[in-house]
Computed example of a mutant assay.
Amino acid sequence: MSVNNIHEWDKGEYNITTDIKKIDRTAVHSYLTRSTWAKGIDFETVSYSIDNSLNFGLFHREEQIGFARLITDHATFAYLCDVYVLEEYQGRKLSNFLMSCIHEHPVFSKVRRLMLFTLTAPWLYAKYGYEPVNQQNYAWTILRKDMYL
C-alpha cells in the first residue's frame, strides 16, 4: 500500500513502513552500535544516514524490532545495508517479510544494480537472488574498518 509515496505492509501483528517519521532512530542506533558492521557508530551519523536513505522499519505493534535501508538514486542503483531483526524476534520469518517488502517497493524494480556487503545471513540474500561478486577486478571498495571506534 502506498500513501504519499509512503509504503506499508502488514503481516499479522507486524508492520513494515517506509515512513521516515515512524523510524525510531534511538532503536536503530542501539542495534547498529553493537552490530558487527557499525560497532560504535555515533547517533548523529545514524540519524543522518536515515535522513538520506529509503528506510524500511519493521514494527511489532508500536515497537521497532527491525530495520533495513536502501541508499539509492531511485533510478539506477541501490545499496542495501543495515538489515537486522532483533534477536528475540528472529526465527519468525520476519527477515523474509522485510526482504520481500524491499523487493516489492517500486524503487527496487527500477534500479539496474543492487549491491549488498555482508558476512551474515548469506542464505537469506541468496533466496532473493543476490550473488557473490567474485570476479577479479570487478567490484572495488575503500573500507575504513575502525571508522566508528
Rank of each mutant, 00 (worst) to 15 (best):
F97D: 01
L119E: 13
P132T: 10
H105W: 00
A139C: 09
K127Y: 09
Q90R: 14
N137V: 02
L94N: 00
E131D: 09
Y130V: 02
T120G: 13
A126L: 14
S100H: 15
V133L: 05
L116M: 06
M99F: 05
K93N: 12
A121Q: 13
R92W: 07
E88M: 04
S95T: 13
A126M: 13
R144V: 11
F97W: 09
R92I: 11
G129L: 14
Y128E: 06
F108P: 00
C101I: 05
W140H: 14
Y130S: 02
S109L: 03
W123H: 13
G91T: 01
I102H: 01
Y128I: 06
M99H: 01
I102L: 03
I102G: 08
P106H: 11
S95Y: 04
R144I: 10
E88N: 12
Y128L: 10
K93A: 06
Y89C: 00
H103T: 09
Y125A: 09
G129E: 12
K110C: 07
P132K: 06
Q90N: 04
K110Y: 02
A121E: 14
S109M: 08
T141F: 15
E131F: 08
L86Y: 05
Q90F: 04
N137E: 06
G129K: 01
M99C: 05
Q136E: 10
F117G: 06
R113E: 15
V111I: 14
A121F: 07
Y89W: 05
V111C: 15
G129C: 06
M115F: 09
K127D: 03
V111H: 05
P132F: 08
V111N: 05
W123E: 09
I102E: 00
A126D: 14
Y128S: 06
Y89V: 03
Y138L: 07
V111Y: 00
A121R: 12
R144N: 07
M115G: 08
T118S: 13
L143C: 09
Y138N: 06
V111A: 08
W140F: 15
T118G: 02
E104T: 04
L98K: 00
A126R: 05
Y125H: 06
L114F: 05
R112L: 12
W140E: 07
I142A: 09
S100A: 15
N137G: 00
L98Q: 05
Y125R: 04
W123M: 14
F117S: 09
E87L: 11
F117H: 11
E104H: 13
N134S: 07
Y128C: 02
F108Y: 14
A121I: 11
C101S: 15
P132E: 11
Y89F: 11
C101P: 02
L143E: 10
T141R: 15
I142E: 07
A121G: 14
V133N: 02
H103W: 03
T118K: 07
L124Y: 00
L86G: 01
R113S: 12
F108C: 03
A126G: 09
E131W: 08
R92G: 02
A139S: 14
L124P: 00
Q90H: 01
H103G: 07
G129F: 12
V133F: 02
K127F: 01
S100W: 04
L114K: 11
K93T: 09
A126C: 04
L119M: 13
H103I: 02
Q135Y: 12
K93G: 03
P106V: 02
R144D: 07
R112C: 12
G129V: 04
K93E: 12
N96M: 13
G129T: 03
L98E: 05
H105V: 07
T141L: 07
F108L: 02
S100I: 14
N134I: 09
S95P: 01
